[in-house]
Amino acid sequence: MSDFIALWPGAASAYSREVDLLIGAFTVLIVALSAPVFILIVVFATKYRRGKPANRRHAPDRNVWLEVSWTLVPFLLLIGFYIWSTHLFAGLYHPPAEALEIDVIAKQWMWKFRHPEGQGEINELHVPAGEPVRLVMASQDVVHSLFVPALRLKQDVVPGRYTSMWFTADTPGTYRLACAEFCGADHSVMGGSVVVMEPADYARWLEETGTDRTLAAEGAVLFRQRGCSGCHDPASTVHAPDLAGLYMRPVPLESGGTVIADAQYLRDSILLPQAQIAAGYPPIMPTFANVLDEEEVLKLVAYIQSLKGGKERQ
């Protein structure tokens, strides 16, 4: 790639090279489908130009078989590519369980990242090469979209819900990161970079960056400050669910049915507690929607996730 003019974006993961292969192969197909049109228009316009003698006898004005075939053949070819691309896409929804989880908060007009040990950074994301990384994203205000061209990945960040995206970058380097969903005045400068590092370098970076407390530890402080512990502490007299070991466990609901207590459920239960009430508990929890910002919610969720082995404690 020359410095003067870039024609193909760099690729930093196996997935991105697969996308390149897909679009390359697909381009071949569409050229094959459209070339006859371009060539024949020129040929016909020359050969059958008005006033020019040519054999025009038996000019057809319909041919059902021909028409059916140019309806069906491209369609069948496209189905093949549809399966290929949908298969690739489905992979994006199935992150490996051991993926390193990094929290992302988007707000006008910056990206905030929090690593599991609590290291925070703004507009710059350091990740280890060769390890799957999963970003759990929330927006504090409007819809944003995290876009890393070198990974061929993009995911909207929508207020009111968590979205996530995962990747395994394999080539160390610094790559561009951008906001792709229009988010107001400074949309075009809401960007930064993704720094892919060798795992050892990443570990060193984590150490150097350091932090006072982990995300979960900060969540524990909030848990007391905001009064959550008043009801949810096992010693409390209020009849409220014990949160230890809750994460990723099935929860039977008052309204019937069961949900898995994933991050989205924990978040909803904090902000919209009346929505999904655990069976056997009174709907007495107030909403914290106006009390907590997205970052604090993330900390609380991280704290609840960290409460392992509730069973033993009982």
Binding site: E254, S255, L272, Q274, A275, I277, P283
Partner: peptide
């Protein structure tokens, strides 16, 4: 669909 109990209430 999203908030059945509150809507019923």
């Amino acid at each position: 669909l999203e908030h059945a109990p509150e809507v019923v209430a």
